[in-house]
């Protein structure tokens, strides 16, 4: 029996308690899933590997974590500056955790196909490590199977001869008129208008506050609904991005509002004023800056969204079919 060769580690690892990693020997890839007390193995022989697919994933979640980390770090800095070092350190530590969570969010996904299985490689979660690991896997697999040139690949693919299998049918892309998107961008403009009125007039009345809050909540609700609705629809890419940008900016705006409120509260308290003093809060420069930014992004994104939606509507609009009847006296359906 030949002596067992040592495994060589591939870049990429995931998990804290349940960990995934990839190792290679001369003839196979070993996928390891380990917990603190045991390891489970799955082998893929290089002779059997048919394909590797690496897909980049959107880093939206990481962006949220980083934004939260920056906001918390900023808040921690403010607290340390305003002689609350304990809370400042606490928020700093939470910011570090948020930063780590953002760093751990996967930005790619990889699966390996053999003739009998298609398995995800959970250890491959980050592009940089993924590219190194896949480069190594390609070299090892080609050592066993040889290389596949473009010409050979083309020779296997006779145009029009690919049989239709369930896997080759693309999921249907449905037409969507964008009603929710109209409401979303409209509510954003409405929210911006109400906020602008409150800002300019300095109004602190309860009904106006309720209307502004309702418009803000409606924006979030319709943004979520629109994001679901536009999935696998023929909605224009620009409109999709406007919805995604709304979903990204909304929590950032909320976090920024919270941070500014806490900052102002701390400043007012240090000056001996009550933090609930509405006029003092409204007149604070930090609040004014926040208000301008808030109104601006709602207004700009709402306008951009509406324009893009209008352009999309115009480009997808198909005129009703022209019905030509030889006998003008006969009514034709749909005419």
């Amino acid at each position: 029996m030949s002596p067992a060769q040592e495994y060589r580690r591939l870049p990429g690892r995931s998990g804290l308690l349940i960990r995934h990693s990839l190792w290679v020997q001369s003839d196979h890839l070993l996928r390891v899933r380990s917990n603190p007390f045991s390891e489970q193995y799955r082998r893929y022989y290089f002779a059997d590997i048919q394909a590797l697919v690496l897909t980049e994933l959107p880093g939206t979640a990481a962006f949220y974590w980083y934004a939260a980390a920056i906001s918390l770090a900023f808040l921690g800095g403010l607290l340390v500056y305003s002689v609350h070092p304990v809370w400042g350190i606490f928020f700093g530590l939470v910011a570090l955790i948020a930063f780590y969570a953002g760093w751990r969010v996967p930005n790619c996904s990889c699966y390996l196909k053999t003739s009998v299985s298609t398995d995800k490689l959970p250890a491959i979660r980050h592009l940089r490590a993924a590219r190194k690991a896949i480069a190594s896997l390609i070299v090892e697999t080609e050592k066993v199977q040889g290389t596949l040139s473009r010409e050979t690949l083309d020779a296997h693919h006779a145009p029009g001869s690919t049989p239709i299998t369930s896997g080759s049918i693309r999921p249907p892309v449905s037409h969507y008129g964008g009603q929710l998107h109209w409401i979303l961008f409209g509510s954003m403009l409405f929210h911006a208008s109400v906020s602008a009125v409150v800002w300019i007039t300095g109004s602190t009345s309860t009904p106006v506050g309720i209307i502004a809050g309702a418009a803000s909540a409606a924006t979030l609700l319709f943004a979520i609904l629109a994001a679901f609705k536009q999935h696998r629809s023929d909605m224009a890419r620009g409109v999709r991005w406007a919805v995604i940008a709304t979903l990204v900016l909304y929590p950032l705006d909320t976090i920024a509002g919270l941070a500014v409120s806490m900052y102002i509260g701390i400043q007012l308290a240090s000056k001996g004023l009550k933090p609930g003093n509405t006029q003092a809060v409204l007149n604070h420069p930090a609040f004014k800056i926040f208000r301008v930014a808030d109104v601006t992004w709602f207004l700009v994104l709402g306008c951009i969204g509406l324009i893009l939606l209008w352009l999309h509507k115009r480009s997808t609009h198909t005129p009703p079919p022209l019905v030509v009847s030889e006998n003008p006296g006969i009514q034709v359906d749909g005419a």
Binding site: D48, Q50, L54, T55, K113, L148
Partner: peptide
């Protein structure tokens, strides 16, 4: 066997590597 292609549906960038075993 092309790097940095885009999914026709979700527009996600992907790289696909196929081998003779396919």
């Amino acid at each position: 066997n092309r790097e940095h292609a885009f999914c026709a549906l979700c527009r996600a960038p992907h790289s696909t590597y196929v081998f003779p075993a396919l």
